[in-house]
Design a binder for these strands. Structure first.
Lengths: 242, 242
DNA sequence: GGACCAAATTGGTCAGACCAAATATAAAGC
DNA sequence: GCTTTATATTTGGTCTGACCAATTTGGTCC
């Protein structure tokens, strides 16, 4: 489920999940606002606000005369989080797709950041990599530094498109994975390879090298996370269907 | 400037643009719903629906006690389109960032599609490339085939994350560029190179080759679009500030 | 079977009201 | 004077009931 505790959000969450679960076929008529108000024992205003959210997600399209359900494939990026959380634990395939995508974008960011960095920024980046190296034996301790490095590179690369995409992806995936306590086992050698690649790239100010190192790292991360999910206790998710 | 013609959408569009124009600083209090209702001469319900949309965009955060403006950098991907359309014509830097991002994702899709394609799908892809080659002298005529090819590759690659991102990006950028009538002048040799690369990659079923060809093509496209925008008549945009 | 028209349905909006949480203001204490 | 506490006000969240316009729906007539 999502965040807030208002009625309209609860209605929106419930309906969103129902659509994501394919309870309605794409193109189907969506129940009328008045019917939904009765069903949720709420006012039509609250229902309307919920539908407004669903429309923003691209899950329904409303028109005078009635609303219709749209294809999940045509939805907004913001449905990824709810989609992944549908069954309580993430769909391994979806996680893999996320990591591949996030990896490509992060590699691009690293490349651009290294290429565009000013001398001072380059020093800052190197420092962050060094700090990362100091904690390369503790996965947990690495996380804050890792985030810091990504943030710094993102700032330097200064690509708003990627930043906005990453906002959505991170908000929906990374936090979710953390919450679920998925700890990928990454080979020490893989991390060393990444750090070395980043360092070399920064020293030569060659973004290609840094980007390639990042890309390779995500490749390994994909495998590691896949393993971690596979062996995870799949607690049966308790979810009211209403 | 957006789509629908309802009052709540108009309010949302106006307020969204004001936020994107930095009329409010991040962290500022947002006007109260009642004040906005007076200002727009609308009911509070309509204003609330508008604010609900802004919240979905990640531009404001509402709480009992008052709403606050959030940083554009923390917003949802869906603000890109409005952001680009703010001054009537697209910000060249933003367009370039879009093309770079879209290029990386499309290259990834091409690579995965070619690698994952079944024999029949491979034949279909080759056919689409051939059709594209048949019209390689007419930019306009290429567009539908180009879209068809991208759609086919997207279906085969079957990466929902990329698909959702592309939905948003395409909806916000491509259509906008088309509407503005921006016609990048792409060298014939560049197109031939792309088509050749795709063909070779498909024949060998080597996604790396196809992906690389796609990547190179977008590189050239970036330059061409940059030129096209630079020399475009910049009609002064007429926008009421309310 | 297809074109046309009336009735029911549905989304969009409005007005006025109440509650609970958050904020601002005034009062009390030091 | 300054902090703390209590009070009043503002603000978002919700409800009820109503009206309009656009769309669907269903029946009628050719």
């Amino acid at each position: 489920m999502s965040s807030t505790n208002t009625i309209s959000h609860e209605i929106a969450d419930t309906l969103r999940d129902e659509i994501l679960r394919q309870r309605y076929r794409s193109g189907d008529r969506f129940p009328s606002e008045r019917d939904l108000a009765v069903r949720f024992d709420a006012s039509r205003g609250a229902v309307r606000e919920a539908l407004s959210q669903l429309e923003q997600l691209g899950l329904i399209h409303t028109q005078p005369g009635g609303a219709r359900v749209q294809s999940v494939n045509a939805a907004s990026l913001a449905v990824l989080g709810p989609l992944m959380a549908l069954d309580g634990y993430p769909d391994p395939l979806l996680v893999d797709q996320f990591l591949q995508t996030f990896g490509v974008l992060t590699a691009m960011t690293a490349k651009n950041a290294v290429n565009a960095a000013s001398p001072e920024q380059l020093i800052q980046l190197k420092k962050l990599v060094l700090e990362l190296a100091d904690h390369s034996d503790d996965f947990e301790a690495m996380q804050p530094r890792w985030r810091e490095l990504l943030e710094a590179m993102s700032t330097i690369a200064d690509n708003l498109v990627v930043r906005l995409i990453s906002n959505d992806l991170k908000a929906q995936f990374v936090d979710q994975m953390m919450k679920l306590g998925i700890h990928p086992k990454i080979e020490r050698s893989s991390i060393d390879q990444l750090l070395t690649g980043l360092r070399v790239g920064m020293n030569k100010q060659d973004g290609e090298i840094a980007g390639q190192a990042m890309q390779n790292h995500f490749q390994e991360l994909r495998a590691a996370v896949g393993e971690a999910i596979k062996f995870r206790d799949k607690e049966p998710s308790i979810r009211a269907v209403n």
